[in-house]
Design a protein around this nucleic acid. Structure first.
Length: 662
RNA sequence: GCUGCCGUAGCUCAGUGGUAGAGCACUCCCUUGGUAAGGGAGAGGUCCUGAGUUCAAUCCUCAGCGGCAGCACCA
């Protein structure tokens, strides 16, 4: 008879007999706690209340309102959903049903597809099961027992799952009333603890073990919370995120459109293109300032070039090819429309003899590339088949590599900061299974990059988080991926730095070193926005269309209240234009309410409203987007303030720097 | 690409086996109105495309194209 010592959250310690269960522990503290307890935290890991505690540990009784309980609620909810589905459609096989962010899903194998109305039926059945409040009980079975049980039931996916459980781990079965499931656990004590705050949100196809060649399954997603209030808040958030959908904003702000004849390619309207160009102009200034020179490579090139680069071999299925359309054309060659800019840039580097004195050789291109993306992947501006990369390639020596990476890193972080993105994660993606080049070259590249990665984290003083994505590198080299978090907490991978020991060699690129010998340079691929289209979409969603003044395609709208002010409005517009602001005037025969509403919906950041009074006094009434108020100011004063605000951040820094130098 | 859902006016969406409707937007008229929709009239559609079933298809069936959600993919 041995004792164990358990420490509690308040720091106290008490001895108990070994093998005491969580439930007994809770009861020993207080009756009410025993009633509220749903699980036990053992050294930070969740466990069933029925589990015996076998060793010293720090313990905490988890109640339904603890944050940890949320995971249990969701997991239990997934089980209840599985029971509901099997109850409604006997013969349906259950596979896996994990907890995910905000909820859970369960994958089913069922011949007949679910119908949208089924969600409500399943939900109703789930409420019944929860109301029944059957306890969750755990049993440990032998492998053979479990396999023959599931095989007899026709649950072949479960049989496979039993086989996948590592040796030495128990095969655990959780029962809730009559229904049971193979499960790692833990669970709460009964279905009633799930509560009512859940909702099935959607269903979708999926694959067994995520393998597109494998069996097709049907997935049902749900969300679950500790209280109905939290559920309502979550559903509200989803609604808010939908309002920010860049496809919707693009329409409302008249920025771009898509149409059937061009799946995955963008029609940019005047205002959208203005925004797009503002971004390009900004990027161009930033990179020119640190030694990049802009180039432009051809839109399509003979496929042999893509064979040399390896793209034809690895990505042929995702490339567009073009040929003369004329039957009589003498040139029958197949050209590939470029999916990347690097082979073009290597040709530019290769043209003429390069000296080591020219390195690092930095060239940049706003390169329009086309990729045949799977139709199901297309999504507004976020995933398209034709897009513009803010691409650059740096040819340098191996010794210069780390320093170039740091310079790129500084540039990237500084640029993200200008857009208000300060929560950045840098991830190192290492060699994939399918790759070119020797292991020795990959070793060197990965070694250098992991050192750089550590230093990036160090230099930022812990502000920049880092991580590793094993096996996610490009086929020609490892890469850094810059993931930024937007205003509503979503993460987007934008920038990338890729170290490449392979392409220069495949293309036979070289420079003459100080010793007069030919040497192969290292190549770094980098992008900061990544895709201009996608970054535009991210900006729109992050700002909900309320772009900062320097980026807004239409910065100012001059609105008249009465037609007597038309002439004054025109003169205001002229002054606004002279200050370099993008503006138009609205002289329409409409009430001011109407104009304010319309331009607010179109997300115009500044409305300058003028009536008789303003015309007489030489003032404007300034109304900012998102504000109910307005401010009457002398025209010159208003324009000066707006012009200053509309200055791009890099130009402002440059001006301020020049002022201090002078 | 896979699974499911969807495709009707510029936008958002009703609707019917007998070739169509609303609101907003658009044009014109009245209105000169002080910060998120003033009133009236008008114009606008090959109901995604093709084939089939039917006396008759926007509607039913099949195929294609496109879109949405999720999965898979993302040099």
């Amino acid at each position: 008879m041995s004792e164990i010592s358990l420490s509690f959250p308040d720091g106290s310690k008490r001895s108990f007999k070994k093998g005491l269960t969580g439930r007994e522990l809770a009861a020993s503290i207080s009756k009410s706690l025993a009633k509220k307890a749903v699980a036990l935290s053992l050294d930070g890991r969740l466990a069933d209340l029925a589990d015996p505690i076998e060793a010293d540990a720090s313990v905490r009784i988890i109640t339904r309102t603890d944050p940890e309980a949320l995971e249990l609620i969701r997991h239990d909810c997934a089980h209840v959903m599985a029971e509901a589905v099997q109850g409604l459609w006997p013969g349906t096989q259950v596979t896996i049903g994990p907890v995910i962010e905000n909820g859970f899903f369960y994958d089913f194998a069922k011949d007949e597809p679910f119908h949208p109305d089924d969600l409500a039926r399943i939900e109703a059945r789930m409420h019944e099961i929860i109301k029944r409040d059957a306890p969750f009980t755990k049993e440990v079975w032998s492998r053979d027992e479990a396999k023959s049980f599931f095989r007899k039931k026709g649950e072949l996916f479960k049989v496979e799952l039993v086989d996948a459980i590592p040796e030495g781990e128990d095969v655990k079965i959780y029962k809730q009333g009559e229904w049971l499931d193979l499960c790692r656990g833990p669970h709460m004590t009964s279905t009633g603890q799930i509560g009512r705050a859940f909702k099935l949100t959607r269903f979708a196809g999926s694959y067994w073990r995520g393998d597109a060649q494998g069996a097709r399954l049907q997935r049902i997603y749900g969300t679950a919370w500790a209280s109905e209030g939290e559920l309502a808040t979550y559903l509200k958030q989803i609604e808010e995120a939908e309002k920010r959908d860049h496809r919707k904003l693009g329409r409302e702000m008249d920025l771009f459109h898509f149409q059937e004849e061009g799946p995955g390619v963008v029609f940019w309207h005047p205002k959208g293109w203005e925004l797009f160009q503002s971004l390009i102009n900004y990027m161009r200034r930033r990179q020119n300032a640190v030694g990049y020179r802009e180039v432009n490579g051809p839109q399509m090139l003979d496929k042999s070039l893509w064979e040399t680069s390896g793209h034809w071999e690895w990505f042929r299925e995702n490339m567009f090819a073009a040929q003369s359309a004329g039957d009589e054309a003498e040139d029958k060659r197949v050209f590939a429309i470029k999916p990347m800019n690097c082979p073009g840039h290597v040709q530019i580097f290769k043209h003429g003899l390069r000296s080591y004195r020219e390195l690092p050789y930095r060239i940049a291109e706003f390169g329009a590339v086309h990729r045949y993306e799977p139709s199901g992947a297309l999504h507004g501006l976020m995933r398209v088949r034709g897009f513009t990369q803010d691409d650059a390639h740096v040819f340098c020596t191996e010794e210069q590599l780390a320093d170039e990476c740091f310079k790129m890193n500084d540039l990237i972080l500084s640029i993200y900061h200008d857009f208000g993105f300060d929560q950045i994660v840098v991830k190192l993606s290492t060699r994939p299974d399918k790759r070119v080049g020797s292991d020795a070259a990959w070793d060197r590249a990965e070694e250098t990059m992991s050192q750089v990665l550590n230093q990036i984290a160090e230099r930022s003083g812990g502000k920049i988080k880092t991580g590793i994505n094993p096996g996610e590198g490009a086929f020609y080299g490892p890469k850094f991926e810059y993931v930024l978090r937007d205003a509503i907490g979503r993460d987007w991978q934008c920038g990338t730095i890729q170290v490449d020991f392979n392409l220069p060699e495949r293309f036979g690129a070289f420079y003459i070193d100080a010793d007069g010998e030919k040497k192969t340079p290292v190549m770094i691929h980098r992008a900061i926005f990544g895709s201009m289209e996608r970054f535009t979409g991210i900006l729109l969603e992050s700002t909900a269309g309320h772009l900062p003044l320097w980026l807004a395609p239409q910065q100012v709208m001059v609105c008249t209240i009465v037609s007597d002010a038309d002439a004054y409005a025109d003169s205001v517009l002229a002054v606004v234009h002279r200050a370099g602001l993008r503006a138009t005037v609205d002289l329409r025969n409409e009430k001011i309410n109407y104009k304010v509403r319309e331009h607010s919906l179109a997300k115009v950041p500044v409305l300058l409203v003028v009536g008789k009074r303003e015309a007489d006094e030489g003032t404007v009434s300034v109304r900012r987007l998102g504000s109910q108020q307005q401010q009457v100011m002398p025209l010159a004063e208003a324009i000066a303030a707006l012009a200053q605000e509309a200055e791009p951040p890099d130009l402002r820094r440059r001006r301020e720097l020049a002022a201090t130098a002078a």
